[in-house]
Design a binder for these strands. Sequence first.
DNA 1: CCCGACACCTAACAAGTGTTAGGTAGGTAA
DNA 2: TTACCTACCTAACACTTGTTAGGTGTCGGG
Lengths: 207, 207
Amino acid sequence: MALSKTVAQNAEVGRTGILDAAALLLGRQGYGAVSLRMIAEAAGIKAGSIYYHFASKDDIITEILDAGIQAVHDEVRDRVAALSADAPARDVFRAVLRGHLCALLEHGAYTSANVRIFGQVPPVVRDANLPVRRAYEAFLDNLLSELKVRDAIRSDVNLPRFRLLLIGALNATLEWFDPQKGSAEDLADDYADTFLNGILSQSGDNT
Amino acid sequence: MALSKTVAQNAEVGRTGILDAAALLLGRQGYGAVSLRMIAEAAGIKAGSIYYHFASKDDIITEILDAGIQAVHDEVRDRVAALSADAPARDVFRAVLRGHLCALLEHGAYTSANVRIFGQVPPVVRDANLPVRRAYEAFLDNLLSELKVRDAIRSDVNLPRFRLLLIGALNATLEWFDPQKGSAEDLADDYADTFLNGILSQSGDNT
DNA sequence: CCCGACACCTAACAAGTGTTAGGTAGGTAA
DNA sequence: TTACCTACCTAACACTTGTTAGGTGTCGGG
């Protein structure tokens, strides 16, 4: 049966083929709407065959969730590392937002899947994803507190809470972002300005 | 069968009893995880009986989604209307955030349900909810553009985009907010300060 | 040539899904 | 009393779900 290679639209097969197909479907349709038979068809195989590579559906989900976080984490880490050690706070903050948004919006079926389905999966799966998630959060907290020590961020800003605000706003872009109406990097820069400077005009009637 | 009134924990019965039970479950477990039999049991009736009040499961969902948006819209509108016409921009903005967050986090099984499941429901149901959703968005856009005309918001702020950023950040609080660690109003004020002033320190090394 | 190992398939399983048809108890009105 | 309406219940329908057991073809190594 080596002739039926180019089934459907997915050239990749095997373990990674299943994961790729599943991530794509989950990111688009959500956890509950995607069945193993859908994943199998998208990957070009039959439902039962999935169990040769994975022990259960939750097994697939777990792996996708972890890979999703890891992808953003890596992207952000690399972009920040590429800056010189004494880069201005503005540039560091921009790099974080650019990395997160690009990983989420441009590449990253896994990242999209994570943001979309994390709130829908059974508790067991969610818990399995927490360590990777916590690692990324800790990374961001460290980065932000460095900026605070440098006196670039106001001292009255509650950092863990701001991190939640930030990630929430960034992940929400997934619901409406349209790559044809502007790049993810431009959006990131715009968001960065808003977070850094606020929306209040300096000259206004502000008490 | 008038004696089996106080079944389970739900005193309300009939149409609104079903809606209340469904909203509570949907807000906690998500769309895919909640079945009609679960809703029925929580409402103290049997699954088939639901079809006396509703034509389908999607019918229930649609009604809950609409009520969820309407609740936030009303709360925000009332709080803003309670201010004097020439109230400072800061206060108007605070009122918006307080209204939205209180409706979402304190009262409002319907609101929580909306935020949680909107991304998971079938397209037909989502489309049915769009008009109410658009009305709230238009209301916010009007409010923000008034503040801009008053020269309280910087002229280079892209308002529709900022509204998306704002709502995204507010709705995301649902995932982590814990009422025992602080009130929704305090959180709203904190968020308002961040959005209005930004996080950048004035004295810093900012180019 | 034979032997496994690999990567898949077929067919079925029990359980759960939304949904429907038809029945029934209790109250109201004539 | 009779008739009717409301608000439920029972029992089943066709279907989908995750999962499993056992079978099949292909391929490289001995």
